[in-house]
Amino acid sequence: MIKKIRSLAMGTVLVAGLVSCGSAKEVTEVDSRSGSIRTTETEHLLKSLQSMPAKGFMFGHQDDTAYGIGWDGDADRSDVKSVCGDYPAVCGWDLGHIELGDDKNLDKIPFERIRQDIIAQYLRGGLNSVSWHLNNPLTGGDAWDVKTEGVVTSILPGGAKHELFLSWMGKLATFLNSLTAPDGKKIPVLFRPWHEHTGSWFWWGKSHCTPQEYKELWKMTHDYLSSHGVNNLLYAYSPGSEKTVDEYMERYPGDKYVDLLGFDCYPSAKPEGTDEYRTLMTTVLTYLTQLGKEHSKPIAVTETGLEALPMATWWTEVLFPLLDKYPISYVLVWRNAREKPNHYYAPYPGQASANNFVEFYNQSKTLFCKDIKSLYK
């Protein structure tokens, strides 16, 4: 079982800070190992993630309650819930375009809807995970615009786009600080910045910056948000599915800046894709289990899934047997796009794998919202 490192007995000090939206006091904790200041609920979330493998692993789905196959924006709806009767324990969200001041994210979800759905998931006791597919600050293109080199260099201190990037992070900080429950407490979020950086399809990827520049980018992001009152984040390190520990850790910014070790892994569409997926998942999960122990971090499969789910028994014959062997805190499958045919990763009523997903749901180790009393107490 992964060691718990965030506790009052190990040097955590309680301090009080004023909540920005009122006069109610918010209790925070200073972790003596990292020096970071976080809300008590956020520290409790970390402890819950560390102890989760003793119970099982949480199931997650990107954009789960915002839209799905054949619907968009309905209240209290979820494709996962429509199939198994329960919400995912983890809901993933993306804040791409928050930096532009837009009212909707890159997948056309209003940011106000995301905020309300994050609150609802928190009140259900579940976890919210947030990524950020931000635009290219040097070219004005999207996150996948990699035609021009030197983007990361341009936003580091002294770079031509440094001040612009700081203004973008200011907008991000404002949104994250706005995530408050009805009682005024800030809602903890697992933040997954600069993900899949061991590939080169994003402008912050491996071919577009040095390991040192990547680490500086991560630390700058962490320190800026902390200095602007964002004390409700845990940080997830989330590369692609690299075959060796050295590749996985090459750009690791350090234990002080990371709270969870994860990775993203998808099977290819080739006929042998499932076998390759099994091999790669086993390789990464094996060394990630050891890294989690060495660094005292919970581990997770931060993105995965089989597009369009053509294999009716994928949930119990592929995914569950892989995850059952390892002490992961959660697994998250990608979104069910309502605007892109056959781009979905969770079943919906009538989908070929729906019955098998119910079998997956009924496994004692798969944890959904009804299985999670609260992650924050």
Rank of each mutant, 00 (worst) to 15 (best):
K3Q: 08
I5C: 15
M10Q: 15
G11Y: 09
V13M: 12
A16T: 11
S20P: 14
C21E: 15
G22H: 07
S23C: 05
A24E: 10
K25F: 04
V30A: 14
S34Y: 06
S48K: 05
L49P: 05
Q50W: 12
T65R: 05
A66N: 09
Y67R: 02
G70E: 01
W71N: 00
D79W: 02
S82C: 13
V83M: 04
V83D: 02
C84S: 03
G92H: 02
L95W: 05
I98P: 06
L100F: 02
L100V: 03
D103R: 08
K108F: 01
P110C: 05
P110E: 06
F111P: 03
R115N: 01
D117L: 12
D117I: 00
I119M: 09
G126M: 04
G126F: 02
S129C: 11
W132V: 10
T148P: 08
G150I: 04
P157F: 02
K161I: 04
M169L: 06
K171W: 10
R192M: 06
P193V: 00
T210S: 07
E216N: 10
G229C: 00
N232A: 13
Y235H: 11
T244G: 02
R251E: 03
P253S: 00
L260G: 07
K270T: 13
T274V: 13
D275I: 06
Y277A: 02
T279Y: 05
L288F: 15
H295S: 05
H295W: 07
T304I: 07
M311K: 13
M311F: 11
E317W: 10
Y326P: 03
V333G: 08
R338N: 09
Y344I: 01
Y348V: 02
N355F: 05
V358W: 06
Y361R: 11
N362L: 05
S374R: 04
Y376H: 08
